[in-house]
Design a protein around this nucleic acid. Structure first.
Lengths: 340, 340
DNA sequence: TTTATTTACGTAACCGTTTTCGTAAAATGG
DNA sequence: CCATTTTACGAAAACGGTTACGTAAATAAA
C-alpha cells in the first residue's frame, strides 16, 4: 500500500532519481551495469511509474477519447472494437463517452478535453448538433479530432466515412429493380450529413429509374422509439402505402418488422425492406434481411490509425487523410421477388 | 494554443495562485467578491484546470476502468450504457479495455492500473482465466475491483450477477415442459462460474423432471466461431440428435439457427431453442426466439453505483455488497409446441 | 481598552517524473 | 604529457495545481 516511487528506488540503489529515471528509459547516458541494477530493483519492488506525474511533465497523456451517441447498436460496438484493437497495439488508452444524442452533453464532454486529459479525439456526432464551434475550439487548443461515420463536413480534419450516397442510391435502385413503385426512406436526422447523403442517393436512384420523387418519401424519425413506431405505423396505414422501405439505420429495422407483422403485411410480398445494418442476425430474421453492411470495424480501426499518425507528427495535415470505405449490399429474402 | 494556467489568472488579477485555486473551489477562506472576480476571469480566459497536475497532487483520477472480453454482444453494449450513465452523473470518466478473452492481456491491463491511472475497476473476466492473483495484487495496492456478470467467486469483493443457476434451471424446465426429451446445453467455458451455474441449473432441472442427465449434454464451445459451427453441426447430425438446445450466450444463437436451416431442421418442430440473449431482434427472428433476458443495463449501472460508494468511503466493505438481479424468460415461437 | 478570534489572503512545500545543465573522471588524440 | 572529448552521473528546475501554515487586518469578546 505504501507507494513506491522513483525516489525509493534511488535511495535503495544509492543513486540519484535522475539516474533511475534515465536508466528506466534506457538512456545512453547511463552505463549498462547501472541500468541493469535499476531494472532489477524496479522489478523486485514492483515499481510502477506514476502516470500523472509523467503526463504532467511530458504534456502527453497517451490517451484518446471516443465520443459516440450510444453503443446499443452493432455499428458502434464493432467500431469500438476496431478502435480499441489499434489503440492497444500503440500503447494508448481509450476513454469512452456517450452523448445519448444530446448536443449539450457533447459540448460539455469536448470542453473537458481542454484539460489535457486526452491527446486526441475520435468522434461520431449527435444527430441534433448543428453548431460545431466546440469542435473548432478544441482543435484550436491543439487537440486533433478525427470524425468517423457521422461527420461534420465543415470542420477541417480527417473524416472516415462509408460511401453513403452510393449506398442510398444502391438501396433505392435495388428496390426499384425488385419491382417497387413507391419507396419510403426512413431517415434519422435532417442535419446529419451521413443521413442526408444516403437520402440524396436514394433520391437520385428514383430519378435515374424515372420514378417520381416526392419529399414525403423521406420520413424523418427521431431518437424516440415510441415516436418512430407510431410514425411507421401511420406510414404503413396510408392508402398510398409504400411497397418498399429503406431503413437508414439498424435500430429502425425491428420496428418495421414488428409493425408489418401487426398489420398483417407480408415481407417481401406486400412490402420489401432493405436496411443499413451490421446485425449478425440479419440472415436469420423472418424473412432474412437485405442489408447494406458498413465496414464498421475497419472504419474504427482506420480512424484510430490516422489519429495516431497525427499524434506522432505534430505538423500532420489531417485534412488530406479522409477515407471512404465502401459498404456492401447483401441481398436476402426481404427484397426477394416471389416466385423467382 | 498558449496554455493558460492558474498562474496566468493570478497575474491578471493581482492575487496569489493559492487564492485563485481556493476561489475556484468555492473555499470559505475567500471573500465573495474575490471569488466572483476569479470566476469571471476564468470564464473570460476560458481556463480549464490541468487534470494531471491536480490528479498528481490529490492522488485521485476521477476515472474508472471497465475491463471486458469484447463489446460485440448486446449484453456488454447495454452494460456499458448503464455504467456510463452513472459515471457521467458522478463526474467520473470511463476507460474501456477489451481482453478479447485473452488472459495475458487482462493481466497486463490490470497491472497498468497500479500506476494510479484509475481509482477503481469494473470487470467481467476472460473465459480462460483461472489464476486471479493479478486481481488480488491490484486490490492490495488499494484499488477497488467490482465484478459483474463474469465474476470470480474466490475474490473478496462485490459481485453483480444475475440468477444464473435459476435461469439455467428455468430454461431446462421450460424445454422439458414443452416436450423436449433430449436437451443439449451450449456452454462457453468450464472455468467461468456464470457458465457453470447456468449449466448446473440445467442439470438440476433434468433431475427434477426425472430425465437422465449425461455429461455429454453439455457442449463446450470456444471463442472461435468456425469451431463452434462445426461443433453444433456435429451435434445436430448425431443420430441421437437433441430436440432442445439452450444457448448459454447470445452469439451462439445465430449459428444454431443457420445450421438448423442448412440441415433442414425445423424450429420449434424438430428442435426447440432457448437462448440467453439481449438481442432486440429476438421477436423478429425466424422463428421468434425464446430468450432469457438479462438486466444488462441495470447490472452495469448497479456495479458502477457500488464502486462509487466504495470510492467515496475509504473503509467501505465491498464484500457485503454483492447483488443478484433476476433475469426473465420471454417465451416466443422457438419453443412453442405446435398446434397449441 | 485589551485580548481573542475571525476573515482573507499569501508563502512555500509538495505530488512524482522528466529534462536541462553542470561536472568529475576516464578515454582519446596529438 | 597536455588538451580535448566522451562517459556516467547528480543537482535542480520545471510541469500546474493543492494545501498546510503563517500573518496582517478587522471584528468580537472580556
Amino acid at each position: 500500500m505504501n507507494t513506491i516511487t522513483i525516489k525509493t528506488l534511488a535511495e535503495k540503489l544509492q543513486v540519484s532519481v535522475a539516474t533511475v529515471s534515465k536508466a528506466l528509459k534506457d538512456s545512453h547516458e547511463i552505463s549498462i551495469e547501472t541500468k541493469e541494477r535499476v531494472r532489477k530493483m524496479a522489478i523486485a519492488l514492483n515499481y510502477v511509474p506514476n502516470l500523472y506525474a509523467s503526463s504532467l511533465r511530458k504534456r502527453k497523456s497517451n490517451t484518446i477519447a471516443v465520443v459516440l451517441p450510444e453503443v446499443a447498436d452493432s455499428y458502434f460496438s464493432l467500431a469500438i472494437n476496431g478502435i480499441e484493437s489499434i489503440a492497444q497495439k500503440k500503447g494508448y488508452h481509450v476513454l469512452i463517452y456517450l452523448t445519448h444524442e444530446n448536443h449539450q452533453k457533447q459540448e460539455a464532454i469536448l470542453n473537458d478535453f481542454k484539460s489535457g486529459r486526452v491527446d486526441g479525439v475520435l468522434m461520431s456526432t449527435t444527430a441534433e448538433t448543428t453548431d460545431y464551434s466546440h469542435v473548432r475550439e478544441l482543435q484550436n487548443s491543439g487537440i486533433p479530432v478525427v470524425f468517423f461515420d457521422r461527420v461534420c463536413e465543415d470542420i477541417e480534419t480527417a473524416k472516415i466515412t462509408t460511401n453513403d450516397f452510393e449506398c442510398g442510391h444502391l438501396a433505392g435502385k435495388h428496390l426499384v429493380q425488385q419491382g417497387c413503385k413507391k419507396i419510403a426512406f426512413l431517415s434519422i436526422s435532417s442535419s446529419l450529413s451521413m443521413s442526408n447523403k444516403r437520402a440524396e442517393g436514394f433520391h437520385r436512384a428514383l430519378e435515374d429509374e424515372h420514378i417520381k420523387y416526392k419529399p414525403t418519401d423521406i420520413v424523418n424519425c427521431k431518437n424516440d422509439e415510441q415516436y418512430n413506431q407510431a410514425l411507421i405505423k401511420k406510414l404503413l396505414l396510408k392508402k398510398q402505402r409504400p411497397d418498399g422501405i429503406i431503413a437508414s439505420v439498424e435500430k429502425l429495422t425491428t420496428s418495421v418488422y414488428l409493425i408489418c407483422k401487426e398489420l398483417g403485411l407480408a415481407i417481401p410480398g406486400d412490402i420489401k425492406v432493405v436496411s443499413f445494418s451490421n446485425q449478425v442476425s440479419a440472415p436469420i430474421l423472418n424473412p432474412s434481411l437485405t442489408t447494406i453492411t458498413q465496414p464498421a470495424f475497419d472504419m474504427g480501426a482506420i480512424a484510430a490509425t490516422i489519429l495516431f499518425k497525427a499524434l506522432a507528427k505534430p505538423g500532420f495535415n489531417l485534412k488530406k487523410e479522409s477515407v471512404v470505405i465502401p459498404s456492401q449490399l447483401v441481398e436476402r429474402d426481404s427484397t426477394r421477388v416471389e416466385g423467382r
